[in-house]
Design a protein around this nucleic acid. Sequence first.
DNA 1: TATAAATACGACTATTTTAGTCTTATTTTG
DNA 2: CAAAATAAGACTAAAATAGTCGTATTTATA
Lengths: 149, 149
Amino acid sequence: MLRISKKAEYGMLALQRIAQSNETVPVKEIADMYGISFDLLAKVLNQLAKAGLVTAYQGTQGGYLLAKKPVEITVADILHTLEGSLKITECADTHSTSCGCTLDTLCAIKTPMQIIQEKMLQVFSSMTLSDMIQTGAAHHTFHSIHINN
Amino acid sequence: MLRISKKAEYGMLALQRIAQSNETVPVKEIADMYGISFDLLAKVLNQLAKAGLVTAYQGTQGGYLLAKKPVEITVADILHTLEGSLKITECADTHSTSCGCTLDTLCAIKTPMQIIQEKMLQVFSSMTLSDMIQTGAAHHTFHSIHINN
DNA sequence: TATAAATACGACTATTTTAGTCTTATTTTG
DNA sequence: CAAAATAAGACTAAAATAGTCGTATTTATA
């Protein structure tokens, strides 16, 4: 179905909220704001912290702050930390010579999948948290990417 | 994990094979060629036939033929018929005003997700079966797409 | 220094999606 | 009529995703 996971969705919502605050934002606040599972969101923020997108502060008055500027956080970063892998196919792993399929010399879709893989990564990398924060994002010009060849 | 399903993979492999034949190609041949489940592949080809990408011929000497020119069949077409939906998020459904989330007036990721959705569709639409057939696909220039704004 | 409000972590369960199998029916050529 | 195909749908198995729970740790502050 080629869907983005709830974890990734929640991560994006949370990062937006955190990006717009100067003070630490606790998980509970965001979970309540969206009516989302506290536990799951906590797990998500924890992963984002480990990935260095966000900084965690424990204890009373604790919570999360962005660890980077919104321009420096791309959708690709978020997906990469929360979806695990972004490979659309075993085949698409650029660095492996084999394919995963039984007959890998015959595997006819490796190269095309690699190309698509790469273009998708460009799409994900071209949008930053900063872009996402603009409410009228639809009318905003993102850092433009040119996909060719 | 944002992966393309096996059904879609099998569909692409099968279409490549069929595209390179003048005679009908039976499911069994392709299944054997790749060591793939006959039943699953049969289901896939059946779906592709219903979607009009391929024409089915029953009976002895039956099998499948392409229903369109390879240039007219895009990866987007294939994914669309075999993955069901290509929406990366509930949010990304361009035509619905609501979002699926509880607080949809607050939903902060709808517009960005729609934009990404659209760009991904462009990527999938820019590669055709014909492109995929070129073995040296990596060095081939596809119908170029320009992603901006 | 005790308490309360946070995050950290890992095990566990439930749900949904994907993958694969099996059976029966139908079509068509020879 | 027999054999080689597709058609269709029910069913099972496996894998990924989503969500829950319990316990530990950290830290500000009253």
